[in-house]
Design a protein around this nucleic acid. Structure first.
Lengths: 165, 165
DNA sequence: CTGCATTATGTTACAATATAACATAACAAT
DNA sequence: ATTGTTATGTTATATTGTAACATAATGCAG
């Protein structure tokens, strides 16, 4: 039996459901905020979620092209910019890659566990980290705008060998 | 009078002393560890410290060239690799830039405050953050190898206007 | 100190990631 | 419909980073 791990979904979880849920959330959020989640942006967001692990911009570009859209690098980067500005996607800068964000709304903070073996990413959301950061920064008179925490290591499934993969 | 801020050194601090101290530490560390801090590596490390804020690889390349060394990109990247492996330099991935590390020894963790205005970087070293990370990761069965925390915002000096700059 | 293995650097070419700048198209509101 | 605004298409190029192989320096066994 698989462990039910909310952070690193097991390989047999319902991908499609997972993606469509994320998209619905995004649609609702954009509607509510008066943001234009155009076809292109929707498509890019869907691809990001479908990959379900960090995807590079040029990988997205290729996938877009395969889906029949005429696209060049700016096409992808602009969509990514929009999605990031509005908190629907995060950039993993240590990998030059992008992942979908589950808690939309532009939050500007992110905490990731990145598995070096399988490449999967889990988004943490531990308030303690933010509070420590804020306190430290305050003491130095530093005003925090945003931050990224990227934690690299090995996930549970990969440690147990191939059984779960 | 300037604030004596250990994290963000004021503009009038003794640059040269600062650099030479860092270099001496690095030399001592490499000697002790049997690491070969060659002329090139030493030169690159010195340039990084001399800049005293994150420097890009190609910027370093240019500076190396100006100092009369024949250098191509791999020259710089290899030196950077060595310096990073041995904890003498950190990479700021959100900026594709490199900074000197004050606590040598390969530690593999880093916490940075990055001022969006002046570009200066302060390295934090708050043990609480590491401990929260470890606990969170443990609960998910994730084994942490290394992590990077990059905090973007505005430093004290820049908030006060140009007086301190 | 000589030859050999190892490590570091030089050199050329190129891969991967990202943006500038300007043209066209879609949209939203009069 | 007209117009201002926002989004996308298109071409070219900037920026960052590596692969692959040649040469040079270094450390060490004999």
């Amino acid at each position: 039996m698989k462990t039910n791990n909310p952070a690193f979904p097991s390989a047999d979880h319902d991908h499609k459901h997972c993606v469509s849920l994320a998209l619905k959330n995004a649609e609702a959020y954009c509607l509510q905020q008066g943001l234009r989640l155009t076809k292109l942006r929707h498509q890019v967001l869907e691809l990001i979620w479908a990959n379900h692990q960090p995807v590079g911009a040029y990988e997205l570009l290729e996938q877009l092209t395969q889906e029949g859209r005429k696209a060049a690098p700016p096409t992808v980067y602009r969509a990514l910019d929009f999605l990031m500005e509005n908190g629907l996607v995060h950039r993993i800068s240590s990998r030059n890659a992008y992942v979908g964000c589950s808690h939309a709304g532009h939050d500007h903070t992110a905490q990731f566990l990145i598995c070096e073996t399988c490449g999967q990413v889990a988004e943490l959301d531990d308030a303690r980290i933010g509070s420590v950061i804020t306190k430290d920064a305050d003491q130095l008179g530093f005003t925090v705008a945003q931050w990224t925490l990227e934690i690299s290591g090995i996930c549970d499934q990969c440690k147990r060998g191939t059984a779960d993969e």
